[in-house]
Nucleic acid binder design. Structure first.
Length: 436
DNA sequence: TCTGGGGTCCTAGGACCC
DNA sequence: TCTGGGGTCCTAGGACCC
């Protein structure tokens, strides 16, 4: 009893967390190879040109909200001369890799948190001038990759997130905000509860109903009350706001599931088209699976009709297939997926989307064989060859016939920029004509 | 006509067992 | 007339993140 009491009163902060976040990342990537976009309102659309998922500061200033359906905003965008791009993931993925690689060269403890964000962790006493250090980090990343970033420092990840938001929002910080030695109460009053990392729309509404609107209100709440209403995750967030670290830096991350799905370009009715799409997504998921050197023990396939439709019947179904043994073999996975698809397919419906999820992942090196199967080295070598060829010449250079060839059900992306950094034929050209 | 895609974690409640 | 209680495991659904 006594010792646990003592443990609570010991100083807990040993580290400082930093959050390095690329500014308007997708827009910044587009601007890199198209400098005319500088100072212009620019937006980038989601996968099927469905929603707006990235906006330049100029576009934000026009009042364009995150997640707006493109078809609703199209006229407004045209009217204000906003430049619109389909998302170009090969480009963003490659630029992300460059930013993260640069950061890892400068910092030993890095957690790549998303395509455009990374946490870093520093020993508390290491740097007297954290702000100056942040500015150097920032300018090095900008110099090496061309991507502008903002950096926030705090005693916990959640507070580093808040610092990062301030660094972006308020000009006085010039991209770097250090809250590591500031008492949280001094800035949490100005922090709306819905802007806090871990408090989403639902919980924000719930808290507002109780009159809790700022971070300061939140840290004053009773722990049991929080625990009961926001679950243990909510309590962790509140502790973090009180500068007590509860969320660790995770340097290694292998995902626990891999999924691949996409909405169709038109409403699909025929099983044959669904089969092609399912096989295509299995193929893509299997590539990711092999890339992280894992095997899947379970495959899930699902289909849905358009959930927004007011005229069509709504249908969503899934089939889960436990594989007899974990595998990363595209052929085996396709076969299972198609069997599952047969079971959930209902004729006469207009489908909007299909997708697959691979789960129960295990490391390929620790493969469990069932009693009656023999290893087939040739299949493994086939997959390796497939990945090599497709990696070099494009991802559908060689594929299973089941995935289809013309893929008419695919969505077009009409405003996509070239793969400047990942495809030879799309390399930007420098010439005397003045054209980039 | 047109509303993304890819993840994680937590909990309640049912099924089952002794 | 009365109908245990406690543990574990699994899953669906909800909430969150970018």
């Amino acid at each position: 009893m006594g010792s646990s009491h003592l443990r609570h009163s010991q100083p807990v902060t040993k580290y400082i967390f930093g959050l390095v976040d690329c500014n308007n990342f997708y827009v910044s990537c587009e601007r890199l190879f198209n400098p005319k976009l500088e100072k212009q309102p620019v937006v980038v659309l989601s996968n099927n040109d469905g929603c707006i998922i990235a906006r330049s500061n100029e576009a934000k200033a026009l009042g364009i909200a995150m997640g707006t359906p493109f078809f609703k905003a199209a006229a407004f965008l045209r009217q204000h001369g906003v430049k619109v791009f389909s998302s170009n993931y090969p480009l963003y993925g490659d630029m992300s890799w460059r930013v993260m690689t640069t950061l890892k060269k400068l910092e030993p403890e890095v957690e790549v948190y998303s395509i455009d964000e990374a946490f870093i962790r520093l020993p508390q006493q290491a740097l007297p001038d954290l702000e100056g250090y942040g500015k150097r980090l920032r300018s090095t990343i900008k110099q090496h990759t061309g991507i502008p970033v903002s950096i926030g420092f705090g005693p916990t990840k959640t507070l580093a997130k808040i610092a990062n938001r301030l660094a972006k929002k308020e000009n006085k910080y010039q991209g770097v905000c250090d809250l590591s030695s500031v008492h949280p109460e001094s800035f949490l009053a100005g922090c709306p509860v819905g802007d806090i990392w871990g408090i989403g729309r639902r919980n924000s509404e719930k808290l507002h109903q109780q009159g809790i609107t700022s971070g300061l209100d939140l840290i004053k709440c009773d722990d049991d009350w929080i625990r009961k209403r926001l679950t243990i995750s909510g309590l962790r967030t509140v502790m973090e706001l009180r500068a007590i670290p509860c969320i660790e830096l995770e340097k290694t991350s292998k995902s626990k599931s891999i999924s691949s799905s996409k909405s169709f370009g038109y409403q699909v009715e025929h099983l044959s088209e669904l089969r092609e799409a399912a096989a295509t997504y299995v193929t893509q998921a299997a590539v990711k699976l092999r890339l992280q050197q894992s095997l899947a023990g379970c495959l899930q396939i699902y289909v849905t009709t358009n959930r927004f439709s007011k005229t069509q019947p709504c249908y969503a179904a899934k089939e889960i297939i436990n594989l007899p043994e974990a595998t990363a073999d595209t052929g085996i996975l396709i076969k299972s997926a198609l069997q599952g698809l047969e079971k959930i397919y209902r004729p006469g419906l207009r489908y909007q989307k299909t997708g697959v999820v691979l789960s129960h992942l295990v490391a390929a090196s620790r493969r469990q064989l069932s009693l009656f199967t023999r290893t087939n080295k040739n299949r493994d070598r086939l997959m390796t060859a497939l990945d090599l060829i497709n990696g070099r010449w494009g991802r559908f250079t060689i594929q299973h016939g089941a995935a289809g060839f013309s893929k008419p059900w695919q969505h077009r992306q009409e405003m996509k920029s070239p793969a400047y950094t990942t495809r030879w034929t799309d390399l930007p050209k420098v010439g005397s004509s003045g054209q980039l």
